Simulated scan of single mutants.
Amino acid sequence: MGVIQRFKDIMSANINAMLDKAENPEKMIDQYMRNLEDDLGKVKAETASVMAEEARAKRAYDEALAEVEKYQKYAEKAVAAGNDNDARVFLQSKKTAQSKLEGLKLTYDTAAANAQKMRQMHDKLVNDISDLRARKETIKAKVAVAKAQERVNQVGSSLRGVSNNMSAFDRMEEKANKMLDTANAMAQLNASADTNVDDLARKYDLDDVAGTSDIDDELAALKAKLN
């Protein structure tokens, strides 16, 4: 019975250790599986040992039972033959064998109960390990997805910085466009001012030319009259 409790404690300790060290589920699940495989080897060896003890106890019990039955038959034959004294000897031997049988029966029952419990523990551990192997891949897949999500979140944070930089770039471009539009407007205004002055000057130049031509014509007419 002590060995059963010992392995219960071993498996419980491994489970508690897993719960206490769950910082990295992917690594810890592998370690947990290795611990369970090691426990399974120990449980299997102990189970085989307990089952062997059950077999020995059963064999001893069967031999003692056969001995009781053998003396019973001899006593019956002696009585049938009218040899009561021989029958008494056989019955005395049967009584001794019967006492031995009762002790062996208790030993066998205990060994059989231990073997049954060990087999149940062994079978449960095998099934648990089989289930955990399947769950292990699911756990690892979830961890991989979680890590990918973390990377996406990190990239998203970086992109927010890029977006801020793009906004600043847009503002600088808008400012540059405004400066260029202002400069173009000033150039147009300067060009317009220069053109007005030139046009005005040509106006007065034409007036001077027009005035001189009229005087020359009047002078020519005066000369013609006098002649």
Rank of each mutant, 00 (worst) to 15 (best):
Val3Arg: 13
Gln5Cys: 03
Gln5Pro: 01
Pro25Lys: 02
Met28His: 04
Gln31Thr: 05
Glu37Gln: 10
Leu40Lys: 09
Leu40Pro: 11
Val43Ser: 00
Arg56Lys: 11
Tyr61Met: 12
Glu63Gln: 09
Ala64Lys: 06
Glu69Val: 05
Glu69Ala: 09
Lys73His: 05
Ala75Pro: 04
Glu76Pro: 04
Ala78Phe: 01
Ala78Glu: 03
Asn85Pro: 01
Asp86His: 12
Gln98His: 08
Leu101Cys: 03
Leu104Met: 05
Lys105Arg: 13
Lys105Met: 04
Leu106Asp: 12
Ala111Met: 01
Lys117Asp: 05
Gln120Met: 07
Leu125Phe: 02
Leu125Trp: 02
Val126Gln: 05
Asn127Arg: 09
Ser130Val: 01
Arg135Asn: 14
Lys136Trp: 00
Val143Gln: 11
Val145Trp: 03
Gln154Asp: 13
Ser157Gln: 13
Gly161Met: 03
Val162Ile: 12
Asn165Asp: 15
Met166Arg: 15
Glu173Val: 14
Glu173Thr: 13
Ala176Cys: 04
Lys178Trp: 00
Thr182Arg: 14
Met186Pro: 00
Val197Asp: 11
Val197Asn: 14
Asp198Pro: 02
Asp199Lys: 13
Leu200Tyr: 13
Arg202Ser: 09
Asp207Met: 10
Ala210Ser: 12
Gly211Met: 07
Ile215Ala: 12
Asp217Gln: 09
Glu218Thr: 07
Glu218Cys: 08
